[in-house]
Design a protein around this nucleic acid. Structure first.
Lengths: 145, 145
DNA sequence: CAAATGTGTTACCGATTTAGTTACAAATCA
DNA sequence: TGATTTGTAACTAAATCGGTAACACATTTG
């Protein structure tokens, strides 16, 4: 896996914290710690999936595509990693071997169950959950100061 | 992810199908569709984890380290991918941003739950399960012929 | 209209990972 | 001793990943 999924979740959580105020890729990039072009590339997928929308020009930027409590981590994962089977299977087994002949199909079934378990768990958290988690953490931080 | 996990499962399932007869890396490689050296490298990790053992020289090769019904896919995953967090988090967020400051810790908790769900599912299948799955598939195949 | 702002998109780079390959010392057996 | 097989190191080609520069296009402002 790559960190794109984590970054995408970061982006959307930041958009939620903006309360509808558009965030430029410049602003988002400074929060994520990378550069605007990379953010815009990721944002493109989020927009395509309806999780965000963007406006060009002065005063432009990105906002959430729908309420944060209706964006599950599962939706984000689907938007970012599209097809990509989570657990890849080698495509080289020998058709002449009783094991090699069937192993791929046998593994497919098991691996799908594993992915499904992952998806079920990813469906349990929304961007709103994360946002309130963050604000709780920041309150604690202020209380200690 | 890489295909090493799938290949490792393939290897162990083949060993099980050998009924205690040692399999050379040459034989295993021909079933997997790669070369013996790669197999020996992977086998090294399986041996280190106690899932297999090997003998050198004439009549040598690898056998299972314990009964197939006591080798879960989870054990194989641990043997192969060791540390490797399943869902990586970017290490670059800005400490100056209220979101960037806490996002990593917030994500950690959620991602751990996801990984745990994965592990729970991986623990439900053993090499013995796969072996009997394969023999069932081969029986069907013979019945059709 | 012209300038400034900001997105959308392409192309490219360097570092890392991956699978594959060669080579050879060490161990084992006949 | 000679044949076989593992264990391990070194190297390569291709893919992936995060990062960067460049620029056309859209939008707002003056």
């Amino acid at each position: 896996m790559n960190t794109r999924f984590a970054v995408a979740v970061h982006i959307l959580t930041l958009l939620e914290s903006q309360k509808g105020e558009p965030a430029t890729s410049e602003l988002v990039a400074s929060s994520v710690g990378t550069n605007p072009s990379l953010i815009r590339r990721l944002m493109g997928r989020l927009i395509k999936a309806g999780l965000a929308s963007a406006k060009r020009g002065v005063g432009g930027g990105a906002v959430l595509g729908r309420p944060a409590n209706q964006i599950r981590l599962l939706d984000v994962h689907r938007a970012i990693d599209e097809d990509a089977g989570v657990i890849p299977i080698h495509q080289t087994p020998s058709p002449k071997c009783p094991v090699g002949r069937n192993i791929a199909r046998a593994l497919e079934g098991r691996f799908e169950a594993v992915e499904q378990a992952m998806y079920d768990e990813l469906a349990r958290t929304t961007i709103a959950d994360l946002a309130s988690d963050l604000s709780r953490r920041n309150q604690l931080r202020r209380a200690r100061a």
